[in-house]
Amino acid sequence: MKDPAQSSTDHQENPPSASVSTVPLWIFALTLLLIFLGTVYFDHHSGWFNPQIYSPFENEAQLEAYQPKSGSAAMIARGKQVYEQICGICHGVDGMGKPGQAPPLAGSEWVNASSYNRLAHIPLMGVNGDITVEGKDWNMAMAAMGASLSDADLAAVLSYIRNSWGNKSAMVTPEDVAGVRAAIGKNPVPMSAQQLEKMPQ
């Protein structure tokens, strides 16, 4: 280091220079190697700019594989939607029925039957005439609405009403509904409660 007093005299100090040696080759090699390794990592993990891939998922196939599809929760969630769009209008979003419109589903013995057969007939064929629900008599009509509902949606809505508002019964699968629908055939005539009671639960 030069003495400050010395360099502040009236002479011209030369700025430092840089030597003109070449860059060692191994640096380029190392850079290329790192670029290669980094790209391999990026290729494996990044999801290639897909806006829906967050770690720990690495690609779309993996994300698909972990979507909870078969789960009852998903089915019930779907059933809730369908219910609120269609059935809730008459039976109430809370499943308590509406006086003069439709009987309750919460706690209903028709809903909580040991199996799905009778229950599935109700929306598929419609009901009319006298029906006793939780000890009360109703006499009205519910039209068939099976035509507008897929097996999956109907299964979802039946599973939903069987597992909501305190109801706790087994789920209904799309295959179950498909079976009932096939047995009914193409002429859904509204049934009476007596006819329903003659069928297996």
Binding site: I53, Y54, L63, Q67, P68, A74, I76, N163
Partner: peptide
């Protein structure tokens, strides 16, 4: 709540 990009199975507590 579950989303497509971060899926999980919610518990059905809301329906019980």
């Amino acid at each position: 709540v579950p989303l497509y990009e971060a899926p999980f199975t919610p518990s059905v507590a809301a329906n019980k």
